[in-house]
Design a protein around this nucleic acid. Structure first.
Lengths: 137, 137, 137, 137
DNA sequence: GTGGTCTAGACCACC
DNA sequence: GTGGTCTAGACCACG
């Protein structure tokens, strides 16, 4: 099961799938060249419409995460292929960071603590990557 | 700045506001009796429609988080729950940071760059705060 | 009437719309800030489904040609905002040029003639731009 | 190289081939009795499925453009139409160039860059031709 | 009124 | 079998 959707979260279903596939790709549990479940299979597993599943994959292709080949299926692309300008990429990330900063402020977590937390999560992320990278049947 | 909305996250704007006010209340950064910005002011600050701001407040009132007193404004009600423990608050932020890290990976932004970007955005946030008035006494 | 679709060409309808809006924007007959017909109106005019019209607009937004504001409509963005890397942009254009070169070869048009033809069409394009730029009610 | 396909244009690949063979026949670059590459070879050259190549040839045969002789291959039939006049051929190319110019505009590629890119792709094309065998005797 | 999402079901192009 | 497109019609978020 590649993803699990929550119909009540308010987040569009197709975006939930996009985020989860991205997470799987980033953490290494999906690897370059791996085939993703077909649109029909994914739709059945998640009990969503085929169009919704297709839309998620279309979005992933537009972002350069996967490659879809007519009649063959969808495959994870090698990382390092983001077609966006560096400035645009930084800007997008900055927006997300701003949201986190506001949230930290609301949760009364200091700048120092937030910075430390980021370092900690980064380390955890790299460790997870290492595990997925070495053990594969 | 009581909230920060992301128009492209897929999460309805009014829900983003609701969640952030709740987070602020839960962590103690907003306290019983505190006044919230008026619908008009909030709409202006966030550059959203007044209807949207009103809807967020309506939702918060329906959930018993705030209380609107005619002609006086909106105020935070006693919530009955003790402020969240620090560990819980960190955990919430960690989840958001994990999402940012995944995004950074796909945007091909290195750990170093991400850390630098956080520092930069933190500084910008503090500067904005300084301009908009001083903190709680 | 912003576009006209040909159902028999084999080219997806939503792509035909995308191309025509791009052409209108490039030639100056649509200008920065101009509102495009609403999804519903466009769908009615072209006698296509509302979803198809929406998809065309979504594609145009993804390419940075228009901006869509929830509840307000779609508006032409200022040019000079392509979010793609220069290398990616050149590559895409190169692919299209390759197709033209093959076609020229089939039509037995020499390299020199093709180059001259490009210069001629570029001049014609700039002239059309000039006309649209100056005369507007 | 008898054709060049664009997988992302939205036009079915088999139709792209049909159109290009027709163009070559109309302009005289393919002449009555000329042999076309076998389905197998064409599929390899264009990196498409053999079924797709076969379909293109089937379509061309149905339209009476080519003739397949069992065991010998495919050959261009007499088409009865005189080769197109140069003006007509230029006009066809001009349409394609106009589309490229519009695309270049949105990709923010200047006239100078576009012209240079054409020269570069022309050179690459000639080089490929040289490698793949000499021209018609 | 605007655009966004989802479902259902159909047909096509391609492997 | 695969993904891509289109239609029809519904509901939601937003101005």
């Amino acid at each position: 099961m590649i993803a699990h959707v929550n119909f009540k979260s308010g987040v569009p279903v197709y975006l939930q799938i996009v985020q989860q596939v991205k997470a799987a790709a980033a953490s290494g549990s999906l690897r370059t060249g791996d085939a993703l479940p077909s649109v029909r299979v994914l739709a059945e597993e998640l009990r969503i419409n085929r169009n919704t599943a297709a839309r998620a994959y279309a979005e992933l292709e537009a972002e350069g995460v996967i490659e879809t080949r007519q009649g063959a299926g969808c495959f994870l692309k090698a990382n390092g292929t983001s077609p966006l300008r560096k400035a645009v990429r930084s800007e997008r990330l900055a927006e997300e960071l701003d949201a986190v900063i506001i949230q930290a402020h609301h949760l009364q977590i200091s700048d120092t603590e937030l910075t430390a937390l980021l370092a900690e999560r980064l380390e955890a992320f790299r460790e997870r990557q290492g595990l997925n990278g070495s053990s594969r049947p």
